[in-house]
Design a binder for these strands. Structure first.
Lengths: 194, 194
DNA sequence: AAATCATAGTAATCTAGTTTAACATTTATT
DNA sequence: AATAAATGTTAAACTAGATTACTATGATTT
């Protein structure tokens, strides 16, 4: 069954009985998206918290000048959502778009509440994964302040070696908070330095 | 009893029985710090998640060049901690220091685990507050990328009108990710514009 | 195979924000 | 009240990164 990867993931944090696993499996939704499709669009309410089985998504924000700013990428074994919109069920600030054909397991807000009542251990699970997300987010703030664009690029490559090859360079530039031209310059500098 | 503000805060998210409230009160620790004292220091394990009853703290990171970068401020009715260190009980990346005399209610990691076992509803409570923190943290990343320093300063004033008067300007500059000299320039520009 | 579109590279010019350094003001200490 | 310490201001020179604009390449479509 295509829900297995999620159950394995949960099992790293809390232990569910077989019955509980079955209940989770029966309530979450497995779904495939094509490259280019949107999971959430700025202005819509974000319906799901999504565990990615395969593929890649980007979360981005379009500002008043029409400029895109990529907040995060997510690949297999990661989660994605517009958490702010999801937890308050209000219009999303961000877009989540598939940049590869992507398989994911989706948990709607209401279903998650049902699951929380039925399996209180899942409160613990979701607490633990959001804590991890919070820590990663704070680290990113620090890096953006204390490191140069070149250093941030190098750290990105080290931290997520799998992602760089899968995304266009202009998206990586946006994630790093620089223009595509400047990333291009950094890359040619790094080649010369060797 | 000095634990009441925390109980009021929790009550906004989950409802505890009187017995449960008593249990929380008996396990958490009320404590006063003087201006300048540290709650956590970079390299030590962060022992507590702290609810601030009164006062003000700053969380900052000292980089390899000895430069301080302020990640967040916290005032009464907020939480502070080095969450990464706290949840993994490994050395902290950040310092948390009181910048006013501060009263807080502290929950140690072990005590929190005991409370989770005894009162599973608290998993829900902590999940909810960390979700809020995560959302705020992501918003800050977006703002840092899409807004100029002047715009960030204006938004800070609007968002946290109480904080600016309580902290030295060089700390606000650090929080905004700019030098104190440049913040000074921004302020004089804003005065001229009126 | 031509044509279009999305992606990437290069280089000149420009600007937001940094650095350095000198000076001013406020707050704390004796 | 005098001195020192911490905080804030101003301005000139500098730099990381943006902007603009043109060229190159590969992928996709017709």
């Amino acid at each position: 069954m295509p829900i297995k990867p999620l159950l394995n993931y949960i099992d790293k944090f809390v232990t569910l009985t077989e019955k509980e696993q079955d209940s989770v499996s029966s309530k979450v939704v497995y779904r495939k998206y094509l490259k280019g499709q949107y999971i959430v669009q700025q202005g819509d309410v974000c319906k799901y918290q999504c565990y990615i089985v395969s593929g890649c998504t980007r979360t981005f924000y379009v500002d008043e000048n029409g400029q895109e700013h990529i907040i995060m990428f997510a690949i297999e074994d990661w989660w994605t959502s517009d958490v702010g919109s999801y937890i308050t069920q209000t219009p999303a600030d961000y877009n989540v778009q598939c940049i590869e054909n992507t398989e994911m397991i989706q948990i709607s807000y209401d279903i998650r509440e049902v699951l929380f009542k039925e399996i209180p251990k899942l409160e613990r699970f979701f607490r633990m994964i959001i804590e991890k997300g919070f820590v990663a987010s704070q680290k990113r703030i620090v890096r953006n302040f204390s490191l140069s664009a070149k250093e941030r690029y190098i750290i990105f490559k080290e931290s997520y070696p799998k992602i760089e090859q899968r995304i266009p360079q202009y998206m990586l530039a946006s994630y790093l908070g620089i223009t595509k031209e400047f990333l291009s310059k950094i890359k040619s500098q790094l080649i010369l330095e060797k």
